[in-house]
Design a protein around this nucleic acid. Sequence first.
DNA 1: CGTACTCTCAAACGATCGTTTGATTCAAAC
DNA 2: GTTTGAATCAAACGATCGTTTGAGAGTACG
Lengths: 220, 220
Amino acid sequence: MTSAPYASRERSTKERILGAAEALFATHGFAGASLRQVTAAARVNLAAVNYHFGSKDKLIEEVFRRRLDELNSRRLAALAKIANQDETQLEDVLDAYIRPALDLSRTDGGAAAFVRVLARAYAEHNDTLRRFLSDNYGHVLRQFAAEFGRLLPGLAREEIYWRLDIVTGALTYAMADFGIIQRKSDVAERDHREAAAEHLIRFAAAGLRNPSVSNSPVTR
Amino acid sequence: MTSAPYASRERSTKERILGAAEALFATHGFAGASLRQVTAAARVNLAAVNYHFGSKDKLIEEVFRRRLDELNSRRLAALAKIANQDETQLEDVLDAYIRPALDLSRTDGGAAAFVRVLARAYAEHNDTLRRFLSDNYGHVLRQFAAEFGRLLPGLAREEIYWRLDIVTGALTYAMADFGIIQRKSDVAERDHREAAAEHLIRFAAAGLRNPSVSNSPVTR
DNA sequence: CGTACTCTCAAACGATCGTTTGATTCAAAC
DNA sequence: GTTTGAATCAAACGATCGTTTGAGAGTACG
């Protein structure tokens, strides 16, 4: 149980599988990446996946849980530093929401692939996977919504959620590097992400500060 | 060639395959939906796909081309009505960009599934598919960027593209119905989409109108 | 009629999929 | 030294995949 005879020679078998699966799922999708590809990339035996995780589906779940827990705790830690303080600006809360996500997408060591896995999970529209995300995500969203509501007292709670939803959409898109903006070859990945984060925060701040309209349709 | 003996009895075999493929690709992904599922749903023979389209990859391409051409022409038609006119508001251009996309996502008859296929295509991160989208999409984006630039003379062209990219992200997210906002059971699908479009347009207008900042980091 | 051609169909092809099996390796427990 | 049990391995399992085949149905044209 606690021995793990091979554990010290490098990263453990489980970790190598998780890393390889994360990268391959991001590139080829859950159905598109086979366990043979995963185990070959991780340089472990094919049977190791079913031995350590039970099945391919369980492996997918584990890939999610590992990164999502880290993202959630980073976001909440950043929020805790600024919540309910007088000098807190709207941009600070957006920063706490956006930057951990974009940071995760540029971490080396395999985490970069996760954001595309996450985006794909949304696209999969798999209800069980969706509920899994909602369960591990809902309380974070509620805490951010509360802080946004404090800084934007003129907006109804439902309006807050509408706008936060828009921000999340743009952020998800940016995380997956979907964008049409081609990073110039002389701009480092880090700088590009930083520019994306700043643009997104400023854009979102302006959108969130927009005064609420009563019930009229869009001005035409 | 022109006879098509079975064509008149219902929709053609090709059309039935395209419709079924669109729906199943959206639900299960390109790799996850098999040709046996597609042909069973379309009530055609398994070999019909390879006969009419050549391969599964060609079928995927055709699913895209059919809907993308329609979206592009609708957007350009809406833009042509308002471009380069004195009384045109920023919201009008956003409407021309956003509403055809959201309309397409609520059209019955199968088109609704396409938006999720489109979102998935982004997530797939397939370079050939990406280039295909860029080729059939780039000129539309440039025309919109030109009109936005006319209405926002204070913004550099690169800044326009950054912000338009953010709008596209939020729109893609909304099209796929990824949102965290749960549509209430007493709200019709149409009304929900309409509310999403209006929120998105207002939010994006505020974000676009935000004055450009020189080179300083985000206000903290 | 016969010929030509398009389309459909059942059946099978080889390849690859996720999973299971049973033997083997190796470190720790006794 | 023997036993124990976790971990790894090659090999095979049945199922399903995309694709191909060859025969047959149906229409149009001479």
